[in-house]
Design a protein around this nucleic acid. Structure first.
Length: 893
RNA sequence: GGGCGAUUAGCUCAGGGGGAGAGCGCUUCCUUCACACGGAAGAAGUCAGAGGUUCAAAUCCUCUAUCGCCCACCA
């Protein structure tokens, strides 16, 4: 075994053995336990691994690997998303480099280009998941444009259409002029921008009393070209007299009415609103109520349309500047105020979106949301952390219709057919129609494709073969856990719950939803490739190994906080992998030729202690993963393995191990060595199993070298038995934990004295211990070998009536007084100062405890065990204070 | 305009009604037969501030401040 763990040498070959072993695939097993299923959030085909993926897929792999080791049939379903806008943008960019647009190549050829892109780049991220060690089912990779998936999408559309849940309408939608498509409300990102509120004077066609104009305010001056009325509040006395009057729209000359509408807030601006029905959803509603025209003044590319008269053809912001300038020139600009307002941006390309009137397809969401809300209320779906359910409820209870049509080419084409000949109502069909069912005339299919999320929402069941009633669907659905980033809670998670329940017998698609922390960079900024603030997980794996990266991420994953990425945790983790490697190397190096594995045995108090600690660890890890407390699990593993197993137990094992290996060792010593070896192997074996979900590579590499008893082995650690806490419970031993705790305290105390007085490690010392308890004396006498090995104590006296030797210092440890003779070594001045300081602290603590114990309220109301603990503390502190006083007296003279 | 989260050691963060914790960094010592990617010892914190509940508050409640995030059609 090499002296240091080398992830690069180990990971790829190991992964290949996993693939070859077929441990990833899982076929339905008739009868028996419900399987554990996870559907991966499908990465975009355009994507490559980023830190969010690294974290999320580590989380999934941890829960999946644990489940698999418990023996439960386990499957992690893998695949990628066709990512309509993102992929289309990539392919368009590529075409642009050839000097072409998608219109130059045509729809069919463009779609073929997209498939080509997918063939070239689609497996990149899959390869990266493999590098991470993710145990997905690679034998069954899905894509949201697979033929059967297309059928699923179409089935959902047709059924919802036939049930009246999908409809087409002319509405204000969010339009991205760069992507040239509609977006749903949640695909728009709002950002507060510094802008202005311009006040415009609109003249009345005829004066009303004294009044010849009305003043309106706007944040988007160019929209005035499309104004078709001015609205005021019906109860607003300032404007009572002009309701019903006519305004002449400046620059355009259109005559438009003044209407009264409740929507208007009299306290904002001037209390009079210019109404642009084609470019604002509220204005649209006002226009509907009052029967006003809807004038669309923008083209798809956000230039001004022919309706904009003299401004036609101008880019939108150019038009804005010109409108303002022209209004000012006409003396109609009354003022410009600074104003901050939220501007919507496209979530894919960050272009400012335009509210735009167009024909689109929508899903009526309220009927679908109701059962999905109920499912979260009654706990059929549980969010982790729980507070996310509030966010879910808020959105679901205020859900609005979903705009699902996109003016793209790459995606699932809307399966609706129109007959222009007879005007029959449009038909949504599972088959491509060639003729009108009514008149036999030619039909044309809707040009639009569906929102990518329309197909993503079917992921948990479409990847199991639905709409076919496959064996997989019957067996693996519903899935167990969904782990994802919070920014797709609405886009994806909520919609999966709604569509899943609607199509699969009202069953929720997963029991638990993990909303993992967002990974920010060290400066607290969002990690982003375009901003150059991202860190590439592949680089991290290069430096720290896959296990180092995974464990480092797990250490940082707690339920409540986002992660400000701390790379030093990955360094600690890769060091940890090396520590595991070397501890294992030590154990293996100290096994004999023909070593016979056997049951662990608590032959010494140290054995009993480590087995008890191991039992505690198993319970913590098992429970922790089951409840998604990844950070706590990682810390427990780290602490146990490094501090308890390596720092103490291995050191405690050395005397027995080495004594039993000497030429002249007697039978008892040889037997003790064998027991020690067996215990080391057992603890290591169990710890490796517990570590495996988080650090699959290093644990597997070592584990395969362990000589295990018949029945304890497996072809791979991946499928070895999980250490069930119940099976270890017999090893719990609180007495041993207390005893070893005392011993270790004494060792530390003596070492501290050694360090303080610079006693060379090789120089043996003798120690006298005075204790109140006869059991302490017995313990120390019995385990003297440990004190010798760990603290370099060569002679030692422990007694209830021991006397302090001359020229010695005293330390209190484990409730005992430990005297270390130090003839000629003590700097008495320094020692006095140190003791005085310690005494002051101890006296203060003691006073605090005494005050507490003098408090009748405390004695009456506190739990008895708490009071007992305080009394013990008081005794200990009193003892310490007395000891320190004595010491000071001795020195003080 | 609503809502959520955070504020603990120099840095990154755990914890959470009863004696302040980790990793990194820092100081000192140690190349002893698993590991210098190591070992041993150590310094370091008014747990943001103010009130309250409680026998007891870093922990629960209220308010304040600062930072971050989400939702929202006020032109």
């Amino acid at each position: 075994m090499p002296k240091a763990y080398d992830p690069k040498a180990v990971e790829t070959p190991l992964f290949e053995t996993w693939m070859a072993g077929g441990y990833f695939g899982q076929k339905p097993v008739p009868g028996g336990e419900r399987p554990f299923t996870v559907a991966i959030p499908p990465p975009n085909v355009t994507g490559s691994l980023h830190m969010g993926h690294a974290l999320n897929n580590t989380i999934q792999d941890v829960v999946v690997r644990r489940a698999r080791m418990t023996g439960r049939p386990t499957r992690w379903v893998l695949g990628t998303d066709h990512a309509g806008i993102a992929t289309q943008n990539k392919v368009e960019q590529k075409l642009a480099r050839e000097g072409k647009s998608r219109h130059d190549v045509g729809r069919e050829a463009f779609i073929e280009r997209c498939w080509e892109w997918r063939r070239e780049h689609g497996s990149t991220i899959i390869q990266q998941l493999k590098a991470m060690g993710c145990s997905c089912d690679y034998s069954d990779e899905w894509f949201t444009m697979d033929p059967s998936y297309q059928e699923a999408v179409r089935r959902v559309f047709v059924e919802w259409y036939d049930r009246g849940l999908i409809y087409r309408g002319k509405r204000i939608i969010n339009w991205c002029p760069r992507c040239s498509t509609a977006l749903s409300d949640i695909e728009v990102e709002h950002e507060d921008l510094d802008s202005h509120l311009w006040h415009f004077r609109y003249p009345l066609a005829e004066t009303v009393g004294e009044r010849d104009h009305v003043v309106v305010a706007t944040t988007r001056p160019e929209t005035m070209l499309g104004d078709t009325c001015v609205a005021v509040h019906p109860d607003d006395d300032r404007y009572h007299d002009i309701v019903g009057a006519t305004v002449v729209l400046p620059l355009i000359g259109r005559e438009i009415p003044v209407v009264a509408d409740d929507y208007v807030d009299p306290s904002f601006g001037t209390g009079a609103v210019k109404v642009t029905p084609a470019h604002d959803p509220n204005d649209f509603e006002i226009a509907e109520r009052h029967g006003c025209e809807k004038v669309n003044i923008l083209n798809a590319d956000a230039t001004v349309s022919a309706e904009g008269g003299p401004y036609a053809g101008l880019e939108r912001y150019e038009a804005r500047r010109k409108v303002v300038a022209d209004m000012e020139a006409a003396g109609l600009l009354l003022g410009t105020e600074d104003h901050v307002h939220a501007v919507g941006h496209c979530y894919r390309c960050h272009t400012v979106i335009e509210p735009w009137l167009s024909d689109q397809w929508f899903v009526d969401m309220k009927p679908l949301a109701a059962p999905a809300i109920e499912a979260a209320r009654d706990g059929r779906v549980t969010f982790h952390p729980k507070r996310w359910e509030t966010v879910y409820f808020h959105w679901m209870e205020n859900i609005r219709d979903w705009c699902i049509s996109r003016q793209l080419w790459w995606g699932h084409r809307i399966p609706v057919f129109y007959c222009d000949a007879c005007g029959a109502p449009p038909v949504a069909s599972m088959d491509d129609l060639t003729e009108c069912p009514e008149c036999g005339g030619p039909v044309r299919q809707d040009e639009d494709v569906l929102d990518t999320w329309f197909s993503s929402q079917l992921w948990p069941f479409a990847t199991l073969g639905w709409p076919e009633q496959t064996a997989e669907l019957g067996y693996f659905y519903p899935t167990s856990v969904l782990s994802t980033a919070r920014d797709i809670l609405f886009l994806w998670v909520a919609r999966m719950i709604m569509s899943g329940m609607d199509f699969i017998d009202g069953k929720v698609p997963f029991d638990d939803v993990i909303i993992h922390p967002t990974v920010f960079n060290a400066e607290g900024r969002r990690m982003s490739k375009s901003l150059g603030t991202g860190i590439d997980p592949l680089d991290l794996m290069e430096h720290y190994g896959a296990d180092g990266m995974r464990f480092g991420l797990m250490l940082q994953t707690t339920g409540n906080q986002d992660i400000k990425f701390a790379e030093e945790k990955l360094l600690s983790s890769s060091n940890f992998a090396n520590k595991i490697w070397n501890a294992s190397r030590f154990v293996l190096m100290n096994l004999d030729e023909g070593f016979e594995p056997g049951e662990p045995e608590a032959a010494t108090v140290a054995d009993a202690w480590i087995l008890s600690r191991l039992t505690d660890l198993a319970a913590q890890v098992d429970e922790g993963i089951a409840t998604y407390q990844f950070g706590e699990v990682a810390r427990a593993l780290y602490e146990f393995f490094w501090n308890e197993f390596c720092d103490w137990y291995i050191e405690l094992s050395k005397p027995r191990l080495f004594a039993g290996a000497r030429e002249d060792a007697d039978e008892a010593e040889k037997a003790a060595r064998l027991v020690s070896q067996r215990n080391l192997v057992f603890v290591l074996d169990t710890a490796l199993r517990l570590l495996h979900p988080m650090m699959p590579f290093v644990t597997e590499e070592i584990w395969r070298r362990l000589p295990l008893a018949e029945g304890a082995g497996a072809p791979s650690l991946m499928v070895a038995a999980w250490p069930e806490p119940a099976g270890l419970a017999r090893f719990r031993d609180e007495g041993a934990e207390r005893s070893v705790g005392k011993m270790l305290e004494i060792v530390v105390a003596v070492r501290t004295v050694r360090a303080r007085y610079k006693i060379a490690p090789k120089q043996a010392i003798s120690v006298v211990v005075r204790t109140q308890a006869e059991t302490d004396v017995q313990l120390l006498d019995a385990e003297f070998a440990y004190l010798n090995a760990l603290a370099g104590i060569d002679s030692f006296v422990a007694a209830t009536d021991a006397n302090k030797p001359a020229h010695s210092v005293t330390v209190v440890a484990g409730g005992m007084e430990v005297y270390v003779p130090l003839e000629g070594l003590v700097d008495f001045e320094a020692e006095r100062a140190r003791i005085a300081k310690e005494l002051a602290f101890a006296a203060e603590d003691l006073a605090k405890v005494e005050r507490k114990l003098a408090n009748e309220g405390f004695l009456a109301k506190a739990a008895p065990e708490v009071v007992a603990k305080e009394r013990a503390k008081e005794a200990e502190l009193a003892d310490r204070v007395a000891t320190l006083r004595e010491q000071l007296d001795e020195l003080g003279l």
